[in-house]
């Protein structure tokens, strides 16, 4: 019945004259080429402008290597933490009712609605020397802002909605019947989670983690505020790209930028695959 009505709607949509359909597709493709493919091509053509040797040399420069290392460290700390947080929050929200649930959902979205500059600035206001606990931290020789911990904190803040946001609708759509069945059959909470819930949300998690990772590695605004821009110490890859560009080192800037572009392409591929798997999982249910 439902399939039937869906089919009629699809048929009706396709009765639009062919030229309208073609025009729409052409407009979408031109738009895509202009705003996505052209800049991407520009990055790679600039990066390889002086040949592969210069490209590799630019990547081997110590400050560049240190920025890559810092970005990897940041992602390695941020992504697992946000994975844990995201799964916990999504599980709580989708499977249980409790007071303050709507507030929690709103709060999870907060980093999306706040400008990244503000996300960085709040940490300067809390941990900075003129901030709430800055002087105490200094007395105890603990560095948060203008050091690696600050960069990680700011990155966690801007990336924490990704996993939770991805899982909540998926888990809500799946409902809690399977978990209830498992519990009735005598499974413990953890067994239920690992044998029933986790396999159901596997691809949703991967999708969320991939997006979270891409943002963690690519974040500029928030990280720029808390970085202090010390060369070879607190510059992440995006910050280093800006520095190289400002030093007239265009080839190196685009070479390093091409790393981020590669990351984006790989993310896109895994994302598409995960999306497809998520759809399959929902249909199987």
């Amino acid at each position: 019945m439902q399939n039937n009505s869906n089919a009629t709607i699809t048929d009706r949509a396709q009765t639009e004259p062919a030229f309208v359909r073609r025009a729409l597709v052409t407009i979408a493709l031109i738009f895509l080429a202009l705003f996505l493919l052209l800049p991407l091509a520009a990055v790679f053509s600039q990066a390889f402008e002086k040949g592969l040797v210069v490209y590799l040399e630019a990547l081997k420069e110590p400050d560049t290597l240190s920025s890559i290392k810092l970005t990897l460290i940041t992602a390695a700390v941020t992504v697992p933490l946000n994975l844990f947080f995201g799964v916990t929050a999504a599980w709580a929200i989708a499977k249980f009712t409790f007071p303050g649930k709507n507030l929690l959902i709103t709060l999870i979205d907060l980093p999306f609605s706040v400008s990244p500059v503000i996300s960085g600035l709040i940490y300067v206001l809390i941990f900075g020397l003129q901030g709430w606990i800055g002087p105490w931290l200094q007395d105890h020789d603990i560095r948060i802002v203008f050091a690696v911990p600050g960069i990680i904190l700011a990155t966690i803040f801007v990336t924490f909605p990704f996993v939770a946001r991805e899982l909540i609708p998926l888990m809500e759509a799946q409902g809690k019947e399977e978990e209830e069945a498992a519990l009735v059959l005598g499974a413990t909470g953890l067994q239920t989670f690992f044998r029933v819930t986790l396999p159901n949300i596997k691809w949703g998690i991967i999708y969320g983690v991939i997006l979270c990772n891409a943002r963690a590695m690519g974040e500029f605004g928030a990280v720029s505020v808390v970085s202090g821009h010390i060369r070879g110490m607190t510059n992440t890859v995006p910050l280093h790209v800006e520095i190289l560009y400002n030093e007239y080192n265009y080839t190196a800037a685009f070479a390093v930028a091409s790393l981020l572009a590669f990351l984006a392409l790989i993310t896109l591929m895994i994302k598409t695959f995960a999306e497809w798997k998520v759809r399959q999982q929902l249909e199987n249910n």
């Binding site: 020397l129 200094q138 802002v145 203008f146 821009h229 110490m233």
Partner: peptide, 20 residues
Amino acid sequence: VKQSHGGSGKQARAVIDGLE
């Protein structure tokens, strides 16, 4: 010697906020 560069006013602000 480690270096950090940026707009002069912004850099002064960072030192005030605890850039060591």
